[in-house]
Design a protein around this nucleic acid. Sequence first.
RNA 1: GGUGCCAUAGCUCAGUUGGUAGAGCAACGGACUGAAAAUCCGUGUGUCCCUAGUUCGAUUCUUGGUGGCACCA
Length: 301
Amino acid sequence: MNKKTSSTLIILLGPTAVGKTALSIGIASHFRTEIISCDSRQLFKEMTIGTAVPSEKLLNQVPHHFIRSHSISDNYNAAKFETEVLERLQTLFATHRVVVMTGGSMLYIDAICKGIDNLPDIDPEFRTTLVERLKLEGIERLRAELKLLDPVYYREVDLQNPVRILHALEICYTTGKTFSSQRTKTSKERNFKIVKIGLNRDRSELYDRINHRVDEMIRSGLEEEARTLYPYRHLNTLNTVGYRELFDYFDGNCTREEAIEKIKANTRKYARKQLTWFRKDPDIHWFHPDQTMEIMTLVKN
RNA sequence: GGUGCCAUAGCUCAGUUGGUAGAGCAACGGACUGAAAAUCCGUGUGUCCCUAGUUCGAUUCUUGGUGGCACCA
C-alpha cells in the first residue's frame, strides 16, 4: 500500500442537532489531527448563533477549518467547497494520517466524496435576469425554452422545479452546449480512504434537542443577529432557517412567537430531509451518539 | 345549583337536507451534481365524547349522561 492511500478521511455526519460536535473533537483529539467543517452555513463569518457554530472553547480544543471562513457576499457553492477542501486536505495529509470532517450538508459531503461536474461559474447578473423572466413569463415559457435547447435534460428534469430549469438554462446559455452533455454522472476517484459515520437517535429525542436548541439560540440573541443581517436578506445565503422566519416577523408578517415556532418546525423538517438523503447512502455506518466505544473501535481500524 | 353554547385527525376548525368525513398547520415518505439550512413532489393517520332510542341505515335527529366554556345565582 502506498503512502497516499493510507490517508483516511473520517466523516462524521447526521441530522442537525444530533450531537456531532463533541464526538468530532473526541475523535480528532485521539488522532491528534484537525477538523474540516462540512456545513454550508457555518462557513460564513456573519452568521454565528443561528447556524449553531460551536463555542470558542470547543473550537479551540482542535484546529477547525471552514468555519466562519467566508463572507455571505462571496457567492459560494458546493463546487468551490470541493476545490478548497481538497486543497486543504492535501496540506493536512502531508502531516496527518487521519483528518476528521464533520457536518450535515449533504451535497457538500458528496462533493468531497464523489466530486462535482466541471461547469463554469454563472454570472450573477445573468441569473438575476433569468429569475426576473421566471417571475414575468412564468415557468411554462422557460420550460419550453429548455425543451428546445436541451431535450435530453428536459426529459429527465423535475419540470415543476424552477431552480433546476433555471440552472440548466444558465449552463446552456453560458457554455453554448447542452447541460446534459456536461453531466458526467460518475464519481471522481480520491487518493484517500473515506470512512462515513452516521449519527442518529430516536425521532422524539432529536426533536426535543432541536426545540431546546432553538430556544437557546433565542436566549443567546438570535433576534439581534438577524436584525443586523436584515439588510442582506435578499442574498441566497440568508434564505436560511432561523433567519428568514425572523425576517418575516420584522416585516410584520407574523408574531415573534409564531416566528420561533416556525424556526423549530422548519429545523425539524430540515433534519428529516437530511435523513432522507443519508438513508440511501450504503457506505454510512450508523450509531447512536452515545456509542463512543463502538465508534472509536471502528475508526481505529 | 339554573340557563345557554360546544364536543369531529396530534392542534385549530369545516362538513354530512340521515348513506361511517375534509381543509390548514403539525407529522410521515420521496427526488435532488454548481442556490443544497436551497428547490421540488407525494401521503389523511379518525370508536365523528358515552349511552339508550327513532330508522333499512345515526357522526348527523331525539332521551339521558360526561367533560369544557359563557352567563345567571
